[in-house]
C-alpha cells in the first residue's frame, strides 16, 4: 500500500491560465496550504500546555526550596521562582488561548519513523562507550536507510559502509579526535 503513487491523470501543468485566480501570490499560498501537514488539535494544545505548566510548577517548588531572600539580597531561588511563575501563568493562558488547536502538526503514521530514529540514537549513545562508534553507527545508518528511508538492501549497505568509513577517516584519521573506536 505504501508504494502506491498519487498519480492522477494530468492534462498539462501550465495551461491553467483560464482557471488561475487573478492573484498569483494567493494561488501559490493556497497551493502550499494544501500541501502542508494538518495542524495539531486542541488535545495537543492542552497536553503541551499542561506539560509546560508542570515544568513551571516543578521549577517554582524547587526554587522556593532554594531560599528566596529579599529583593535587596536575592537568594538563589528568587529569579528561578519569578521565571517559573511566568511559565505557569503563560501556560495556563495558552490552555485558554489555544483551546481550539491549530498550531503545530498532527502526528501521522509516519511519526513512528521519528520514534524509531530516536530509539536508534539512544542505542548509539548507550553502545558508544562500550564498543566504539563504528558498529553502532553502521547499524544506525543501515536502519535509517533501509527501514526509515526505503532504500534497497544493496544501496543501504553500500552507502552505510561508505559513510562509516568516511566518518572514521575524518574524525579518527584527519582530525585525530578521541571518539571511542574499535578499530
Amino acid at each position: 500500500m505504501d508504494g502506491s503513487s498519487n498519480g492522477k491523470p494530468d492534462g498539462r501543468a501550465d495551461g491553467g491560465a483560464a482557471v488561475a485566480p487573478a492573484d498569483p501570490a494567493q494561488a501559490l499560498a493556497d497551493e502550499w496550504a494544501e500541501e502542508t501537514p494538518p495542524p495539531a488539535g486542541p488535545v495537543a494544545n492542552l497536553a503541551a500546555s499542561l506539560v509546560t505548566t508542570a515544568i513551571g510548577v516543578l521549577g517554582a517548588v524547587t526554587a522556593v526550596g532554594l531560599g528566596l531572600g529579599t529583593p535587596t539580597q536575592p537568594g538563589a531561588g528568587l529569579w528561578p521562582l519569578a521565571i517559573s511563575v511566568a511559565v505557569v501563568v503563560l501556560s495556563l493562558a495558552q490552555v485558554v488561548v489555544g483551546r481550539r488547536g491549530g498550531d503545530g502538526e498532527k502526528f501521522s503514521r509516519y511519526s513512528w519513523l521519528s520514534l524509531v530514529g530516536l530509539a536508534t540514537l539512544l542505542g548509539l549513545v548507550a553502545l558508544l562507550p562500550v564498543i566504539g562508534f563504528e558498529i553502532p553507527a553502521l547499524l544506525l545508518s543501515l536502519i535509517w536507510m533501509k527501514f526509515l528511508g526505503g532504500e534497497s538492501w544493496r544501496s543501504a549497505v553500500l552507502y552505510s559502509v561508505l559513510v562509516v568509513g568516511v566518518l572514521y577517516g575524518v574524525f579518527v584519521g584527519a582530525l585525530g579526535t578521541n571518539v571511542p573506536h574499535l578499530f
Binding site: G3, S4, N6, G7, P9, D10, G11, G150
Partner: peptide, 19 residues
C-alpha cells in the same frame, strides 16, 4: 493516450503492477 504522473515511496514495481 492518457498520462499518469506521480511519485512512489519505495518501489516502482508495485506501482506499475497496481496500475
Amino acid at each position: 493516450a492518457e498520462l499518469v504522473r506521480g511519485t512512489h515511496r519505495d518501489d516502482f514495481t508495485d506501482e506499475i503492477l497496481d496500475l
